[in-house]
Design a protein around this nucleic acid. Structure first.
Lengths: 349, 349
DNA sequence: TTTTAGCACTCGCCCACCTAGAGTGCCAAA
DNA sequence: TTTGGCACTCTAGGTGGGCGAGTGCTAAAA
């Protein structure tokens, strides 16, 4: 890739900014005035011809101006775009921070973050709900007998998260049996991480030594499903502000919109996309078909991972038209990820 | 309301059916052929003029055929429409029944029902999640101490539903204190309905007799929030298949669609609408502005309440264009409500 | 060599106009 | 009361011309 002349870069940059601003193809005349380079339209035309040859811009038809191609956007966000981290004033930032920190429940926190994101960007927001962290410490288990040989198993972690599930047993347990089983279990595994507990359970079941009392065996059998479930629980997503996309003229096509909405509902593709972003810190951008999903062809996705106590646990992002204001969206996504990380980490004292 | 002649009724009925089928205004020529009455177009025109005067049909413009008005639809569903309950074959019905009864978790049952509904009708489906039934029997409460004076309160009802909440206390409780408090509470209130428990709690707190031991007081104070919460917990909705509405030409207007989607997201208006339907058994239909919500002006809503052990606990329904196939939608909504009732009631043995 | 002015050309958009077709309302006859 | 006939109305869709925006190219200027 031969590097562009400084002039070409400036022109490309102004073209893209202009196009992002009003969505109309930009002509040489406009561009010449806008760029502040004191060039004639004719010269600009020559440069545009070069850019077109490089595949960075194209004209929708002969007598229209130029619009950026996907490659053009790519170059733009990679090297032409200077993101002003301070761009949204400290006041707004503070409001957001407050709004987030006022929410106690982690699940609600995710929803709130998603809502904020879509509200600020006026685009669709996606936040991945972190799968339950295996590092969490096991605190307590509780068995509650129900009718018909059913037992309600309640699992509590050290930070106060609760998971529960009804299981079926092969015979009826008396209340005191259940209490005993729970006591045994709590003593045996208290303070372990969920991961360790599950591993240990597997081991115990394999051995199944004769020395093991029936009661312990029951306790383990009853508890096992709850510990298994969480590991198989697939990551979920919270989506909000989808309908914002209906106001965007670029996606005016009902067909496109329909596929987009179906993607949001199915969530599968989006989940994959967010997963991509989970590995590395910082904002990541998928432009058009870079996402690899047909439904997102006309869209860009801006994502950033968020952390909980220094571990990346999930990703958030927004989906909008390729012609979105990256300048504004990027810092918003970035900050929201940071603030969410902060809010999530605070509580776990 | 002067009653229509039999002929007028037949014509109106065929007109509406025809219009529902292909969405085009129906002219006198077509209608004359279709109705099987052996009338000339001219005669039909006369009748149409009468119907127009009665406000049952209207023409979009001079040289178009007629389309039903809201009042026309009303009359149609009220007295002209014969719904064939047997219309969808027993096989389908069985499949649905099986799909529903294979789901154990009540929450998932709601989601599944919603999905089925939208899939079968190709419209948007709404199912209200029943607010926690106050008639439910209290079974057990559990207090789990967390860090920083926080206590996790877990409430279990007889049928195995779990509600939990973290509360802040003014001092740290020892594990044994928490166990004692829970024991006291469980003995005092076991077997009561949630409603009774809350009432009783209020009474106890008012008295606050000196004779009351500190431990009981603590127990009551800790438990109270959980019992209060549920009563204030607003009814929630599960919506699915919204994007089906994007395929419907009647709602082609992006503006309309946008408002509709916002309504689905906000859910408030829909919840009210479903509430309307909760009082009386059977299918209820809101046509166009009858719903009272502007966003639903171009839509009809078909709802039916569902039960759990003979008590109506929620409502389900579909939202679609006014020009929907009531003939098909009504029995689907009806059957789904019945089947959901069945599936919900089975489990609570 | 680079930049600029000039010019012919292309294309999309808008508007005005037209026509065909569908359907109506009304009147007079059956 | 019903019907055929007829004049009328309105929409959808197609056509053609003018306008404006913008281009590519060429030749002259810097």
């Amino acid at each position: 890739m031969s590097s562009l002349t400084a002039r070409a870069e400036i022109l490309l940059q102004t073209l893209i900014k202009r196009y992002i601003a009003d969505g109309l193809p930009v002509g040489s005349r406009t561009l010449a005035k806008q760029a502040g380079l004191d060039l004639s339209p004719a010269t600009v035309r020559n440069v545009m011809a070069d850019l077109e040859e490089l595949g960075l811009v194209r004209s929708p038809h002969t007598s229209a101006g130029r619009i950026p191609t996907q490659a053009g956007y790519r170059l733009f966000v990679d090297s032409l775009l200077k993101v002003d981290k301070e761009q949204f004033n400290a006041k707004t930032l503070h409001e957001i921070e407050e709004e987030l920190s006022s929410v106690k429940d982690p699940k609600k926190l995710i929803t709130t973050a998603s809502g904020l994101l879509s509200h600020m960007t006026r685009l669709a927001a996606v936040v991945s709900v972190p799968r339950r962290n295996e590092k969490l410490q096991f605190r307590q288990i509780e068995f509650v007998g129900l009718s018909n040989n059913r037992v309600l198993v309640i699992l509590v972690t050290r930070d106060g998260q609760v998971q529960n599930r009804v299981i079926y047993t092969d015979h009826k347990f008396s209340p005191s049996e259940l209490v005993q089983a729970a006591n045994y279990f709590n003593q045996a595994f208290g303070g372990f991480s969920l991961e360790e507990v599950r591993k240990q359970l597997l081991r115990e079941m394999k051995q199944d030594s004769l020395a093991m009392r029936q009661m312990m065996r029951d306790a383990i059998n009853m508890a096992k499903p709850v510990f298994d479930e969480e590991s198989s629980s697939k990551e979920d997503l919270v989506v909000s502000g989808e309908s914002n996309l209906m106001d965007i003229p670029d996606l005016g096509d009902l067909k496109t919109l329909r596929r987009l909405f179906d993607t949001f509902t199915a969530k599968r593709d989006l989940a994959h996309l967010l997963d991509e972003s989970v590995r590395r810190e910082g904002v990541k951008i998928f432009i058009g078909s870079e996402s690899g999903y047909e439904a997102l062809e006309e869209c860009s996705v801006v994502t950033a991972p968020y952390k909980m106590n220094e571990n990346i646990v999930g990703t958030l992002g927004v989906v909008g038209p390729t012609r979105m204001s990256y300048e504004q969206v990027i810092p918003i996504v970035d900050m929201t990820a940071r603030l969410l990380s902060g809010a999530l980490s605070l509580d776990d004292s």
